[in-house]
Design a protein around this nucleic acid. Structure first.
Length: 465
DNA sequence: TCCCCTTGCACCTTTGAAATGG
DNA sequence: ACCATTTCAAAGGTGCAAGGGG
């Protein structure tokens, strides 16, 4: 594994063909991203979403599925997902709520999941929903399958990145935009802590159908001894109450609320918007109310009751990828719709590439911060960031440099196939773009006190192997 | 002792190839 | 011969529960 520092970032101006179609290609329209199965995510979020992580890798459920619009139909895009820590703590489940259990462990190698269709024209991404079903989470820091590595008992927020790039080689120079959906945040666990989450998973995940309490499912129970009698009884009680997509009434109260009230110092009474948000999100209360930008999202207010949550990226008509711009000055249809202050003090600066460090590793000290410091925290509300990828991508003539974790997932015809990968069979699931590439993530210029530390988690920070 | 993780298990869905029929 | 539908088995995704380790 070649460290990123050995992959000299190419600061020379790339060929126009590799710069996502040249300057004109940066003329962008408003990119919209909506989260599918939003109702399901919210149902989990209200309880406190947990995602199982295993050594061999475990899929997410619900899995990330988004809809995109506003892309340029003929411009090519790359779609990626990564996970960033929400806070700097390790947590534990105590009876019926989550509690802080100490400082977070050092951040594992940060990996990014590359959607297997990437790169593809905007029309492709927009014609149907974009699913990340195959994305897997693992707690194995030595994982060689390209799964996203997480720490158990830590909280994470998935981020979706849309990169306008003709191919992976040009990603480094490409405009990218980042979206987050607060309801997709979760706690990584090796075994479910909250029985309500277990029940939700069983009820909604088809693969767990065998655990549902149905008359037809008698075989397994006959073999089972009576484990956790009270738990089983509880299951029986709640089964009938729950609608197909809804949540039982007792799910309304987030298991995190008590913890958050205690540790995050947020007032329990909030304005109407926040109250509404809190109802949806266990994480909501820990977000700084003064920085709440939920209301400028289409997710705010009634919109959050619809099945899809949506994010909109307002971009300047002529986007200059190498120049700073202030996000706050951009027109924000969503904010106007929300009728609130929008993003107070929010601005996003796209750093000049030339001024950006050659590579940006995840800084371990980011997680060393105490509770009073500005710990990594989920920016409140759906986030989007325009930015410039500063991803170090080796030339195609240097196979092996980048090939460690870049695979041609579906067919060799795809641009991804250009990347030389590991020996066949070494990394079977090839859908990942391991974060081995120096990237100047958007968060760099994201002048927001609450999210400053997101800069510690660049889009493509590089991993350790 | 407690907490967390690993592992093997049974049950289930998904997927793709083979078989069948029009 | 071709195409659409059905069948079937393998692969793989689930949570459960026991056991182990720190």
């Amino acid at each position: 594994m070649q460290p990123i520092r050995d992959m000299k970032p190419n600061f020379s101006v790339p060929s126009s063909s590799s710069v996502a179609g040249g300057p004109d290609s940066y003329h962008q329209v408003n990119v919209r991203m909506t989260l599918e199965d939003s109702y399901l995510w919210k149902a989990f979020h209200e309880v406190g979403t947990e995602m199982i992580i295993t050594k061999q890798g475990r899929r997410m459920f619900p899995h990330c599925k988004i809809n995109l619009s506003g892309l340029l139909p003929y411009a090519k895009y790359i779609v990626l997902v990564d996970m960033v820590p929400i806070d700097a703590f390790r947590h534990k489940w105590n009876k019926d709520k989550w509690e802080v259990a100490g400082k977070a462990e050092p951040q594992p190698p940060c990996r990014t999941y590359l959607h297997p269709d990437s790169p593809a024209p905007g029309s492709h991404w927009m014609k149907q929903s974009v699913s990340f079903l195959k994305l897997k989470l693992t707690n194995n820091t030595l994982d060689q399958h390209g799964h996203i590595i997480l720490h158990s008992m830590h909280r994470y927020q998935p981020r979706f990145h849309i990169v306008q790039a003709d191919d992976l080689f040009s990603v480094r120079w490409s405009v990218f935009q980042t979206f987050t959906f607060p309801e997709t945040s979760f706690t990584a666990v090796t075994a479910y802590q909250n029985t309500k989450i277990t029940k939700l998973k069983i009820d909604h995940n088809p693969f767990a159908k065998g655990f549902r309490d149905e008359a037809t499912n008698t075989k397994r129970r006959a073999h089972r001894s009576q484990p956790y009698p009270e738990k089983m009884a509880k299951k029986m009680n709640t089964t009938d109450k729950e609608s197909e997509h809804g949540s039982p009434p007792d799910f309304r109260r987030s298991p995190y609320n008590a913890y958050e009230d205690e540790h995050m110092g947020h007032p329990k009474s909030k304005d109407g918007v926040l109250v509404k948000e809190e109802r949806y999100s266990p994480w909501g209360p820990e977000q700084d109310p003064s920085l709440n930008i939920r209301t400028d999202s289409p997710l705010g207010a009634d919109a959050r009751d619809i099945y899809n949550s949506e994010q909109l990226v307002p971009t300047p008509a002529a986007y200059q990828p190498y120049r700073s711009h202030e996000y706050g000055k951009l027109p924000s249809p969503s904010s106007s719709a929300g009728g609130s202050a929008g993003r107070p003090g929010f601005e996003s600066r796209v750093p000049d590439v030339a001024t950006v460090p050659e590579h940006e590793a995840p800084k371990p000290q980011a997680l060393e911060m105490g509770p009073t410091s500005c710990a990594p925290q989920l920016p409140p509300g759906p986030q989007d960031y325009p930015g410039v990828l500063n991803m170090s991508v080796p030339p195609a003539s240097k196979p092996g440099v980048l090939g460690h974790h870049l695979y041609a997932p579906y067919s060799t015809e795809q641009a991804l196939g250009q990347w030389s990968g590991p020996a066949p069979g070494q990394y079977p699931p090839p859908h990942h773009l391991p974060a081995e590439y120096s990237t100047q993530a958007v968060h760099h210029g994201y002048h927001h006190g609450n999210v400053a530390d997101w800069s510690q988690y660049p889009l493509f920070s590089y991993s350790c192997w």
